[in-house]
C-alpha cells in the first residue's frame, strides 16, 4: 500500500467512533456490535493509567482507591448494560457537571496533549470489556 493511503486509513481508524443511539438513560446496543470480555475489562478498569476508574471509585477490587465517585461494588445489580454504556461513553449527557470523564468522545476537548489528541479515552471494544466486568459486580458474586 502506498504510504499516504496508509496514513489516511490510520487517521480514519483513530478518529472514527462507532455510531450509537441514546434511548432514555441508556445506549442499548454494544458499540461495534460485539459483547466484551470481563477479564480484560477488569484489567482495564483497575489500571490507573488506562481505565483510571480506581482513581475515583471504590469497589472495583483495585488499589489505591479514590473517593470522588460512588462505590461500584454492586453496580451490576443497580444498572444494566445499556445504562452502564451511556455512563461510560458520555456521562455528561446525564449530568453536565459530573467529574467523570466521557470515555468515548473525541471532540469538544481543548488543549489536548499531543499523545492523546483526537482519540477517545477508551476504544469501543475496551468500553464493552469494562461493561462486561461491571455486570459481574453483584452482591452474590465473589470479586
Amino acid at each position: 500500500m502506498r504510504p499516504h493511503l496508509l496514513a489516511i486509513l490510520v487517521a480514519l481508524g483513530q478518529t472514527a467512533l462507532a455510531p450509537y443511539r441514546i434511548e432514555g438513560d441508556a445506549i442499548p446496543l454494544p458499540l461495534g456490535g460485539a459483547a466484551g470480555d470481563p477479564a480484560r475489562g477488569r484489567a482495564i478498569a483497575r489500571d490507573p493509567r488506562k481505565g483510571l476508574c480506581t482513581l475515583c471509585h471504590a469497589g472495583l477490587g483495585g488499589a489505591p482507591e479514590g473517593d470522588l465517585g460512588p462505590d461500584l461494588a454492586q453496580v451490576g445489580a443497580r444498572l444494566d448494560a445499556g445504562q452502564l454504556r451511556l455512563r461510560l461513553v458520555d456521562g455528561r449527557a446525564l449530568n453536565p457537571g459530573t467529574l467523570m470523564p466521557s470515555y468515548y468522545r473525541a471532540e469538544g476537548a481543548e488543549r489536548v496533549g499531543a499523545a492523546w489528541a483526537d482519540r477517545p479515552i477508551l476504544e469501543a471494544d475496551e468500553i464493552e470489556d469494562v461493561i462486561a466486568f461491571l455486570l459481574t459486580l453483584r452482591p452474590e458474586a465473589p470479586r
Binding site: P64, E65, P101, S102, G108, R111, V112, W116, A117
Partner: peptide
C-alpha cells in the same frame, strides 16, 4: 475553571469542588 485536556477536567473541578477528597491515594 475551563475543562482542558482529553479528560476535560478543570483545575476548579478538583481544587475548588473536591479538595479534601482523594484521587487514588
Amino acid at each position: 475553571e475551563r475543562p482542558l485536556g482529553q479528560l476535560r477536567f478543570s483545575c476548579a473541578g478538583c481544587h475548588d469542588a473536591h479538595w479534601g477528597r482523594h484521587l487514588g491515594a
